[in-house]
Structures are given as structure tokens and as C-alpha cells.
Design a protein around this nucleic acid. Structure first.
Lengths: 197, 197
DNA sequence: AGATTATGAGCGAACGATCGTTCATTATGT
DNA sequence: ACATAATGAACGATCGTTCGCTCATAATCT
């Protein structure tokens, strides 16, 4: 059944497997409490071989930070729709909450944030993707406001930032207590966002 | 000018000095990239002497986490006033924003958060003080709502949490770019909070 | 085609550095 | 004198990384 894999294919698969295993280790123990040996052992790979696929620990961390940032890009695509913009915003809130409130994602995000505080490379990748998401959200809010015709006293961009703040804050609370968002929490969140726009 | 200090006093001062130095190191390098030797060298203290004042690195981290948590307690006291509750809320927003947006505090908070993800002792101290602050803020919001007489569709407690989320989110953005909050940002924040209550 | 060379994945011992911690010893205030 | 603050060498463990090596595959040549 299984095709015979070429050398490049198995190498890519191996590399991917190492990254995924490293991510698990980092979530469980944090970047700097995870040794290369931990990753190698858990991935079923020799210690030295990791250095055949990655330049070093720093490169591994950077790669995982990039992967995490790219998850946001997927969310962003589903944002701009032609239908009711308010409904689209609501589904975005739900999707972003669901993503952020997964404990593994939350843990990794905090770890990346701590790392970004000292590593300019990581902070750049983090901010770039975030700004992109922010811009899309800003447009969405502008569209909603144009329809409702109000005269909001909070700039679109600030409003977009606040919206993400609300979702992320709730996400942290949920992730920390390792539960699912309750109906009440989700409703409160949606109402809060609606009040902002 | 300087009084002659008793032995116990110098010991306490020394201890305090070590804690403060450790905090600086932790902010700059993170908990797990800071060695005891780094702290000792920077504090002008011998390596072994640190273990005369602290049980070990873990204890040092826990102590700093506690100190950081206790900073919230001070804020909380100024919250409940008999005068205009809405004005009191506004000054709270300003004060909390000012506190959280200091880069050292922000960095330490993230570090503590990451640590709390794996250390139950730290997560407890963190949540305890935060719940206390949250309760005070909840009461404040309840008082405001009673005056305005509206029928809010967001529970007081959720509203309090969201308020902290907004302040903390903006704080992170400010701390990350190492600047002061602009007038526009502060105004947007206040307006957003007002919309929530 | 078959033979030959080049490539790089995979391995684990070994390296030097650094880690948190302990300990015997000295200095100092009471 | 006694208790304790202060010291830095020393310990074992672990860190990230490098090393020489094997071997299956890919590329090149005849």
C-alpha cells in the first residue's frame, strides 16, 4: 500500500516530525527547559541528526514561532465575506477564540511572547502576521460601521485591537483552567465586541 | 548620616538587594537564562551567600512572583471611593495602565505567566491576588450600573474581566514598543471601558 | 547496463561550558 | 565564645554543539 518514498521525501517527513515533536516538548516544558536530547529521544531520532536538519536550537524555536504565526493567516482569509459583515465578525470571534483557547496554543503563545521580548527575529515574525490580521479586522469593522451609520468615537484600528484583546484575554482564562468556553462567556464576549463597534 | 545597622537589618537589606537584582536579571534574560552566578555577580555578592538567604532558585522566582502580585493589592485600595464611581473607575484605568505598561513589569508578567503554566505554587499566588482585584472592580462596576440604572446584558464579573483585558492588552502593545501611551490610546481605552459598563 | 563516486541522513561518543547546589573555611558582628 | 554572614572551590549533572563514522541513495561516468 505504502509508496516507496524518495530520499528527499523521507528527509522532509523526518524534519517535519522533529518540528512537531519539538513543539510538544516546548509546550510541556518551555523553550529553555527543553534540551535537544529531550526532543531527539521523544522523536526517536539521534541527537546528532537533529543538527543535520536544523542549524541549532534557536533555529528550531524560530521555526515553531513562524508556524504558530502562520496559523493566524488562515483565520484571516475567512474574514472578508460579501454577506452580512456583522455575522462574519461573529464567526471570526468564535473561530479565533477556539484557536487561542486551546491550551497548547496558549502555552506556546506565552512562550513565544517571552522569547520575543529578547529576540528581534521572533518579534518581527510575530508582529508582521498580527498586523495583517489587525488590518483585515479593521476593514471588517469599518464595513459594519458604514452600514450601521453611527458616529463611533473609537477609531477603527483601536477598535480592532481591543476586539483581539478581548478574545485573547478570555482565551487565556479558558486555557489556564483547561476547560471549554461556556455559553455565557461566549455570549458576553460577543456582546462586548458588538458594543465596541 | 547613615545609622549603624544591626546585624539583622543588614541581613534583611542584603536579602532585599538580592531580590531586586534578581528581578533585573530575570527581566533582562528570563528566569531560565539567568544563572545564580549572574545574580551574585551583579549584586556584588558571593555565589554561596545567595544560598544563605534563599533556599534556591525556585524560591527566588516564587518570591519575585509574589512581589509582583502584591503590586496589584496597592492598586486595589484606591479603587473603592465614596465619590463619583465612574471617575474612580477612570483613574483606576489610568493607574493600572501605567503600571502594566512599564516594560519591566510587562516582561516580568509574561515570564511569570509562562512559569505559572507549569508551577502550581506560582499560579495560585497569581490567581489569588487577581481574583481579589477582579472582585473590587466588579463591585465598582455594579455601583456605576446602579447609578446609571441601565439593564446591562453583560454580567458585572465578565465586564470586570473584559476591562482588565483591555487595559492589559494595550499595556502589552505599549510595553513592547517601549513608548508611553498616547492621548488617543488612553481616550480610546476609556471610551471602550465606558461602553462595556 | 553496470561500475564508481558523491551526497547527506543517521548515529552516539565526546567536548567544553555552564548549570544549581553543597561544603569547608574565614570574617565579623554580638 | 559563639552564631551566623560571607566566601569561592568543588561536585555531579546537564547543556548545546561538534566530531568521526556508517551506510543507503543519487548522480555521474564508462
Amino acid at each position: 500500500m505504502s509508496e516507496k518514498l524518495s530520499r528527499a521525501e523521507t528527509a522532509d517527513a523526518r524534519r517535519k516530525h522533529i518540528v512537531e515533536t519539538a513543539a510538544i516538548c516546548f509546550v510541556e516544558q518551555g523553550f529553555h527547559q527543553t534540551g535537544i536530547r529531550d526532543i531527539a529521544k521523544r522523536a526517536g531520532v539521534s541527537l546528532g541528526n537533529i543538527y543535520n536538519h536544523f542549524g541549532g536550537k534557536t533555529e528550531l524555536i524560530a521555526e515553531i514561532a513562524t508556524l504558530e504565526a502562520e496559523e493566524l493567516a488562515e483565520l484571516q482569509e475567512g474574514l472578508t465575506t460579501n454577506t452580512d459583515p456583522l455575522a462574519a465578525l461573529e464567526t471570526f470571534v468564535e473561530r479565533y477564540l477556539k484557536l487561542c483557547s486551546q491550551p497548547e496554543n496558549a502555552a506556546l503563545t506565552i512562550e513565544i511572547l517571552a522569547e520575543a521580548m529578547r529576540n528581534p527575529v521572533i518579534v518581527e515574525g510575530f508582529l508582521t502576521n498580527r498586523d495583517s490580521l489587525l488590518l483585515a479586522l479593521e476593514d471588517q469593522i469599518a464595513a459594519i460601521r458604514k452600514l450601521s451609520g453611527g458616529n463611533p468615537d473609537i477609531p477603527d484600528r483601536d477598535c480592532a485591537k481591543f476586539t483581539l484583546d478581548l478574545i485573547e484575554g478570555l482565551s487565556m482564562r479558558i486555557a489556564f483552567s483547561e476547560r471549554k468556553p461556556s455559553k455565557r462567556e461566549l455570549n458576553s464576549l460577543k456582546r462586548a465586541v458588538k458594543r465596541l463597534v
